[in-house]
């Protein structure tokens, strides 16, 4: 206990630690944001294909292709994340020329998260009211217009809410990546806390991750509430003008 308190004092007084934590937080943030954006884009395309391409969808695709896509996503989702990362690290080598560090953890994060994001967004898109799709078809929308101008905008609140979920999940993945050479708060927690038995550093790193998650969730929920027009209780643009 004494050691823990001394370590904790050290964490807050030694500028070396502060720098370390600042850098770690930044690394965690940028790798998570980058990985989330990339995984989200890939996941969104896959989700649209899954929903629009199925039998009876907006633009049915060959059954073989849909089956293949489903199996691929299921396989990628069932491989444990750490193992998948090890498999994908050569990809980082290919793209970035290194397997170690924050940047190197991004490609594995994307590959690991994209299928998960695809399933997440698939459920959002499936909430789409079929009647509205039918109305769009009856108006002479092309399949692309239905996806781009009807499905995506109408599902925006759900899609945005799942962006937050994806971000937080990838933040967690990124912390794990610290164990196998990734950067960020996860690495700090592993290196000091686990390898050098410095629980104080481990705790502070964990608390920082928790804070990041809380901020992300609050910001995400707020943004979703702002863009959701389906509920009467939401602050509307007109309301804001009045108070301004």
């Amino acid at each position: 206990m004494d050691k823990f308190l001394t370590d904790l004092g050290e964490v807050f007084s030694n500028p070396k630690y502060l720098e370390e934590f600042a850098a770690g937080t930044w690394e965690t943030l940028y790798s998570t944001v980058l990985a989330t954006v990339l995984a989200y884009l890939i996941g969104l395309v896959l989700a649209v294909l899954l929903v629009a391409g199925e039998e009876g969808g907006v633009r049915p695709l060959p059954t073989v292709m849909m089956k293949g896509l489903n199996v691929l996503i299921n396989i990628l989702r069932s491989v444990p994340f750490l193992i998948l990362m090890l498999f994908v690290l050569p990809l980082s080598m290919l793209i970035l020329g290194t397997q170690i560090g924050t940047a190197a953890s991004i490609p594995p994060l994307v590959v690991a998260a994209a299928p998960f994001v695809a399933r997440l967004l698939e459920t959002s898109l499936r909430e789409m009211d079929r009647g509205v799709l039918e109305a769009a078809q009856s108006m002479g929308c092309t399949p692309f217009q239905i996806v781009w101008k009807v499905m995506l905008p109408e599902c925006l609140p759900g899609l945005a809410s799942n962006f937050t979920t994806a971000f937080i999940t990838i933040l967690g993945y990124g912390a794990m990546a610290g164990a196998i050479g990734g950067g960020g708060l996860g690495r700090i927690a592993m290196n000091y806390g686990y390898h050098r038995n410095n629980l104080a550093v481990c705790l502070v790193a964990t608390v920082l991750i928790v804070i990041l998650v809380q901020i992300a969730q609050s910001a995400g929920s707020y943004a979703v509430a702002r863009m959701d027009r389906r509920s009467r209780s939401v602050p509307k643009r007109r309301g804001r003008k009045k108070s301004a």
């Binding site: 009211d129 009647g131 109305a135 929308c141 109408e154 609140p157």
Partner: peptide
């Protein structure tokens, strides 16, 4: 698609774009 633009439809559940 062109033909559908000259045949409009309204529905029991209105089917407006809520967003």
């Amino acid at each position: 698609i062109a033909q559908r633009r000259s045949i409009s439809m309204i529905f029991q559940q209105f089917n407006l774009l809520m967003q």
